[in-house]
Amino acid sequence: MTDDTVTVRPEILDYYNRGAEQGRLRREHNRLEFWRTQDVLRRLLGPAPLRVLDVGGGAGVHAEWLAADGHEVHLLDPVPLHVEQASALPGVRAALGDARALEAADGSYDAVLLLGPLYHLTERADRLRALAEARRVCRPGGAVVAATINRYAGLHDQLRVGRYFEPGPRAATDACAATGLLGGTGDNPLFTTAWFHHPADVLDEFAAAGLPDARQYGLEGAAWLMGDVNTWLDDPERRGTVLTALRTTESEPSLLGISGHLLTAATAPS
């Protein structure tokens, strides 16, 4: 896909052109999101080799370990910097692409991952197009997995770090909690333009895109809000205990919204 066919909102492109995404999931409490995503995906995908399409895969943080596991990984992203970074990873083939208009043939992948696109598609119609495209290019019986940010993740995070007590961050956080939309204006210190889902709304969108009977997995549970989490993650034994504990409640409906991020997975129909 050529540059002129990939449209990215300017503020989103500016945000990711800072280059921070390449190492974000390997720092501090963000490691919990990374390891839990890895844990859930390995169980959902099963043994290698699979042909995996990583749509909106960023700089390749997940494509890297998927390729190391033995999968054939093709990554698409609308940010040229991410494509350049991902292309340098062993076993990863990367190209510019738009989640709403995939060039792959019908049923050409064993698994299709959308671990970032639904964050920044603020219109429901665009999210449905992305999910429908993922369903189209996934073989019958394959896995379609999407990541979303939970509606109150910003509220929880800003309370966690203490910035909710500042008027600017509090106003942006409250607006997002009320509407789901985080505006990417220059004075917004939280993130860039993004959509924050209620867990049930993700299931509705999957079903509307032809992906019924989806399953959901809360990634961080309540652990990401606990003050000792970074110390626990530094200790391999305690980290393993935390990851195992989070499996216990990962699909408990009453607790899905406490996680910062959610994975929703469905089997592509015939």
Rank of each mutant, 00 (worst) to 15 (best):
G60L: 04
T173K: 13
R124Y: 06
L255E: 14
G154T: 12
V137A: 03
L81P: 00
A130I: 08
L190P: 00
T192H: 02
C138P: 00
E252Q: 15
P189D: 04
H74N: 09
D234P: 04
H62T: 06
G141W: 09
L113V: 06
N188H: 06
E205D: 03
A175V: 04
Q38A: 14
V242E: 02
T248F: 11
F191P: 01
T122N: 06
R139A: 08
T267A: 14
V6R: 09
P10V: 13
R24F: 08
L128C: 06
T37D: 08
V242P: 00
C138L: 00
Q85R: 13
A68W: 05
W224D: 02
E205K: 12
G23K: 12
P80W: 05
I258S: 10
M226R: 14
R43W: 09
L155H: 10
T37Y: 12
R129A: 15
Y152W: 13
P169S: 06
V242A: 09
E252Y: 15
V79G: 11
L102I: 06
N30R: 14
T148W: 13
T173P: 01
T192S: 06
A63R: 09
S254V: 10
G97E: 00
R18P: 02
H74W: 10
V6H: 01
D110K: 08
F165V: 09
L211W: 11
G91R: 13
E11G: 04
T244W: 12
A59M: 07
E220S: 01
G227R: 15
A88I: 03
A105F: 03
D98Q: 04
Q216E: 12
R136Y: 02
L32N: 00
D126F: 04
L255V: 13
R160L: 05
G107W: 12
Y15D: 10
R247Q: 13
R239A: 09
S259Q: 14
R160Y: 03
V145Y: 14
Y15T: 04
R31I: 08
Q85H: 05
L243T: 03
Y15A: 13
V83S: 03
Y164D: 01
A265T: 09
A63F: 01
A125E: 13
A20C: 04
A132I: 07
P269H: 08
L121W: 02
L255P: 05
D126C: 10
R31A: 06
H71I: 11
L115T: 12
D14E: 15
A86E: 01
A130G: 04
R100V: 09
A94S: 11
E72W: 13
D174T: 13
R100E: 02
S87R: 09
